[in-house]
Design a protein around this nucleic acid. Structure first.
Lengths: 226, 226
DNA sequence: ACCTGAACACCGTTCAAGT
DNA sequence: ACCTGAACACCGTTCAAGT
């Protein structure tokens, strides 16, 4: 009912080779449209707001149509997560590139800050990309690749810091997991609505994020040779 | 259909003052039964597996009956979360009591370990107690109290360590939030199914939890006066 | 090859009617 | 006061039938 009416075509009936793809739907890039709708829905109402029927409605197709492209709801969520993770990874690449002249600990900080900034600014997308057994799906190769790439960035940076003697004694793996748990935990505390209980105002969240990362880096650093 | 048939009463029709509450349902402590069913369902199928209708089925009542006790699904989840948090807090109290002869950092470790052990062993209950805007509900006073108590335990222990000069310079609040983000993040990584991506075997999870807590405590400790 | 429309099973929620 | 049973709107998913 409330869906915007399909743009009434000028006149001629399907000039098959014309340039504008203006006619209703009946075909086209439905898969992309559904994925985009899923991302919008997640941003508007969280993961549980992502619905096959509503995505279909927004794409202007019937309730059964999405099942031609996604075997089930989980697959649609995975496609949305894939796109969200692609964007997330892009941000981290940029953050890391901007800090590439610095030392490993400086780059680690840039990475952590990029991570938390994105999570704080795109909570719903961070949510769908982190929750659920979406990773177990078959078609989730891009997802796994992007995820592995992000893990690798962190690992390489910390390993480099360790090699150059900037970290205190300890396993690199432990530092990596601790760093991830810290940023993931802070991001999820936000997403899961814990900030009010901790009296964290949303305006101070990014400042706090930076302080946490500094604390972490200082905590795993070698003591100054004073 | 498959619900176990109500236990056919011996014979006499409603001996109103009898001792045994053996007759079907039609009354009784439905609220408690529904809360218990919700906890079971969460343990079996996660938060989204908690359903008004299934809880009603397990309690042996009709689909509309739960609405006499809970205004909506969220309220039922809140009741389950309340009970889960009560148990969680009990565990932490025990952990803290067992370590009460130690110094503040020792007690902090006991608290962190208690936290992570419970989360690793009761993932579904940890999930329903941490996710969602359940805290915003009216009837959630116990929830808020227990939660505030847990936060206070952490805060007091860290503040004591700071007072006795065992921590390095820094705001107590930051240490508290960092500690919470770390344990919450590790717990959620487990619950959200990230451990396989990080090659963490479930048998080593508790060992790793301990190592993380040690790392954290060392990281915020004052350098030894060597 | 892709989409529609009706159908089924399941859910949350409401409400008149029963005890 | 508490519970039943039918009803409504919504969802995921399937499937025969259309183009």
């Amino acid at each position: 009912m409330p869906t915007s009416a399909p743009p009434s075509n000028t006149s001629s009936r399907r000039p098959r080779r014309a340039a504008e793809p203006v006619r209703p739907y009946h075909h086209g890039k439905l898969k992309e449209a559904l994925t985009e709708a899923a991302l919008d829905l997640a941003a508007e109402a969280g993961e549980e707001g992502v619905t096959m029927r509503e995505a279909a409605r927004r794409a202007g197709v019937s309730p059964g149509a999405p099942f031609r492209h996604f075997p089930d709801r989980k697959s649609l969520l995975a496609a949305a997560a894939e796109e969200a993770l692609r964007r997330f990874r892009g941000e981290l690449d940029i953050a890391l590139a901007a800090a590439r002249t610095g030392g490993p600990l400086e780059r680690l900080k840039a990475l952590g800050l990029g991570y938390l900034r994105w999570a704080l600014r795109n909570p719903a997308h961070f949510q769908i990309l982190s929750t659920r057994a979406i990773f177990d799906l078959d078609g989730a190769e891009t997802l796994r690749e992007d995820n592995a790439a992000i893990i690798a960035m962190m690992e390489a940076t910390i390993a480099e810091a360790a090699r150059s003697g900037q970290l205190r004694d300890g396993e690199v793996r432990l530092f990596v997991i601790a760093g991830r748990a810290l940023v993931y935990g802070f991001a999820r505390m936000f997403i899961d609505g814990h900030f009010p209980r901790w009296k964290i105002e949303s305006e101070e969240a990014e400042r706090l994020a930076e302080a946490l990362i500094d604390l972490f880096i200082t905590g795993i650093s070698a003591k100054p040779a004073a």
